[in-house]
Design a binder for these strands. Sequence first.
DNA 1: TAGAACCTGGGTGCCGCACACAGGCAAGGA
DNA 2: TCCTTGCCTGTGTGCGGCACCCAGGTTCTA
Lengths: 137, 137
Amino acid sequence: MLTVNGLSKAARITPDAVRHYMRIGLLVPSRDPKNGYRLFDDEALKRARFIRRAKGLGFTLQDIQTIFSYADNGRSPCPEVRAIIQQRIAENRASVTELGELLERMEDALERWKSMPDGEPDGDEICHLIESVPLGR
Amino acid sequence: MLTVNGLSKAARITPDAVRHYMRIGLLVPSRDPKNGYRLFDDEALKRARFIRRAKGLGFTLQDIQTIFSYADNGRSPCPEVRAIIQQRIAENRASVTELGELLERMEDALERWKSMPDGEPDGDEICHLIESVPLGR
DNA sequence: TAGAACCTGGGTGCCGCACACAGGCAAGGA
DNA sequence: TCCTTGCCTGTGTGCGGCACCCAGGTTCTA
């Protein structure tokens, strides 16, 4: 049986993460009657490692909740898992695209600014560099 | 003079965003003594539009605070602006890379899973699809 | 005169933790 | 025996950038 710190080391996550997972119900400890310490069994260790793996694949903690509730009710989570990851892949593609477009705007701006002098405060503009950039729709 | 809603329309942001910017001190309204309504002048409208532009370039609200405080003290924010955007560009590149790597892992996993059957609960594994994935370091 | 549409303040929720506080408990050495 | 060190406990707050909701007051329009 492991304490919070012990579990955090065995599963290679921070103690704060362990506490967080407890708070949201992903990990449920028992108690040492002697001192009230939380104790985690092998099942909890398995879960903690699973969480680490799943997070590394882009599953959210909510997703992992869902997966656990399937498993806890004796049903296979696999079909859901396939569906969820497709969803997350789509979201991820969208945000990569979006971030890439932002990055391009940023680089363009920096480049254009190279040939522009710094402005002096004139009570009319806040920063002419930024104000020289066209508004996105 | 514009109310919250009026400003939100003139600057093309949501009323909730206007309220948020007020809360964190980016926009400071005066008051209509008749009814206590918040009133925004042209200066505030200029600021609201500036916020929209700067956000579109990847500046955080904190960055914008900094820029405003330069301008408010009669100093040119331009050198800071150049420094900040370089910083944000670097961060953005890092997260694009990171997200891209995550996306790759996700796609690889989905692909491998195509040739794997759904598992049935056996009390040993939670989801063999996910557990078949190697741990990242 | 009624209803719609606006306004006010304040609070909560999202995501995944990180950090901090104040105090209790356990095990070692001087 | 006391002191130190290092674990543990519960609780609360902060991050970014809003979105949403509540309960109630005000203003405009038909």
